[in-house]
Design a protein around this nucleic acid. Sequence first.
DNA 1: ACCCTACAATATGTCCTACAAAAGGAATTA
DNA 2: TAATTCCTTTTGTAGGACATATTGTAGGGT
Lengths: 232, 232
Amino acid sequence: MSDLKNDIRPLEPSTMTDLVESRLREYLKRKSFVPGDALPKEQELADALGVSRNVVREALSRLRMLGMIDTRKKRGMLLAQPDILGSLERVLDPLLLGKNTLKDIFELRLVLEMGLADLLYLRKTPEDIAALEDIVAREVNNQQKPFRVEHEIAFHGKLYQMTGNDTYMRFQKMLLPVFEYVLDFEMQANGQADVGEVTHRNLVEILKTGDSEDFRRGMKAHLKPHFDRLKV
Amino acid sequence: MSDLKNDIRPLEPSTMTDLVESRLREYLKRKSFVPGDALPKEQELADALGVSRNVVREALSRLRMLGMIDTRKKRGMLLAQPDILGSLERVLDPLLLGKNTLKDIFELRLVLEMGLADLLYLRKTPEDIAALEDIVAREVNNQQKPFRVEHEIAFHGKLYQMTGNDTYMRFQKMLLPVFEYVLDFEMQANGQADVGEVTHRNLVEILKTGDSEDFRRGMKAHLKPHFDRLKV
DNA sequence: ACCCTACAATATGTCCTACAAAAGGAATTA
DNA sequence: TAATTCCTTTTGTAGGACATATTGTAGGGT
C-alpha cells in the first residue's frame, strides 16, 4: 500500500519561489493577521527574504489565486479569506485528472449523497418540499440524455441547497460533472444506464412522510445502479 | 439567499496574469495534451500571448503550484496530473478560514462520516477488522484530550483507509484538524465534550456482525453529540 | 565498436532597472 | 467647508542580463 506517501512529507520544494511561498504562508499564520489587515509591500518582503521582487511576486501570485490575499493599487496587499473551493474548481476537470482520481471522485459523490439525510432533515422546510415537487413535476418522461442530466442536476442540486451548507453544495456541484463524465465513459463500455427503482418522486414522498433513515434507504435504492457499478 | 454568487460568473479577472492563467488553462484543455507532453517554452508563450515573460511566469507559477505542470531545467515544461487535494491542503487551515466556512466543514465531515458505510462494507477485510480491534484495544480509558484526539484520528483514519479510496481518505484527514478546532472552540464556550453512546468498540462489533444499515445507525449514535450541536 | 568524459547548447531560475497606471492623500481654490 | 487638482506611493508590466542545470554530442581512450 502506498500509505507512505501520506505519512512522510515530500522533501522541501526546491525553487526560491516555492520557499518564499511557504515562508509567506507561515508568516501570515504566525502573525495571526485579521482579514483586512495590510501586509508589507512587495519590495520590503523581497528585501527581508533576500530575494528579488520577481520571486516574491510569483509567490504572491499563487496566494492571490488561492484568495488568501487581495491587492489594491496603492493600499498594498490585504489579507483575505481564502475561498477553499476556488482552487479545487480550477483543477477539477475530468480531462485533467487521472483514472484513479476520477474513480475516487465518483465514489466520493456517492458517499456525500448517502450522508446527506441528516442535514436534510435538520433543515428542510415546506417551501423546499414544494420546490422539489415542482422540479419533479417538470421531469417529463423524456429520458434522453441531455434532459436526464439536467433533471439530475436540478433535483440533487436542490437537495444540496436545502442543507443550508454552502460549502457542501458547491462541492457537490463541482463533483457532478466528473460524475457524469465517468458515467458516460462506463456506459459506453458496458451498455446503457440503469435507473434505480426509487425515483426522485419517491424520494420527495419520503421527505414528506418518512424519517431520515427512510430517506437514506431510499437514496441507497435510488443510487443502487451506481453502487453496483463499483468494483470491489 | 446569496445563491446568485453561484449562478452568475464573477466578471473576468483584471490583471494580465489572471488572463494568461485562464488562457493557458484553456489551451491545455483544448490541445488535450497527455501527461508527459512537452509544452512550448516560456518565451514562445510570452510572444504568442503578447505579454512579457514575467507575466507568463507568474501564471505558470500558479499552474505549477496546482501540480498541473512540471518543469525540468532544459526539457521545458511537461504537463502533469494535478493533485486535486494539494491545493486544498494549502488553504484548509482553521486560522485562515471564516466562521461560516468552519461551520460548513464541521458539517461536511459529519456528512462524509455518515456516508461511509456502503464503501466500507464493500471493501472491508478481516485484516482490517483485526487492525481496528487492535486500535480499540489500545484505547485505554485515558480520556484526557490529547489522547482522545489521537484515538479519534487513529480509529476514524483507519475507517477511511478501509474504503480503499485514497482521495476520500486524504480529504477526511484534512478535515479532521478543522473539525477538532471547531470542537475545541465550542467546548470552551458551552462546557465539555459529550461522548456518544456508541463507542468505537461497538462500531467494530457492528462491522463484524451487522450490515451497512446497522453500521450507519451506530455511527449516527456515535456522532450524536455533534449532530445535537448543529444549529438549525 | 563501445564506453566514458568533456564541452557546447538550451531552457528555466533569478536578478535588475525602468516605467505605466491606479488610488490615496495633500494642497489649492471656490 | 467642499470640490478639484496635483503629487506620491505601490502594484503591474516590460525587457534585458546572467547563473545554473541538463541534455545531446563530439572526442578520446580501450
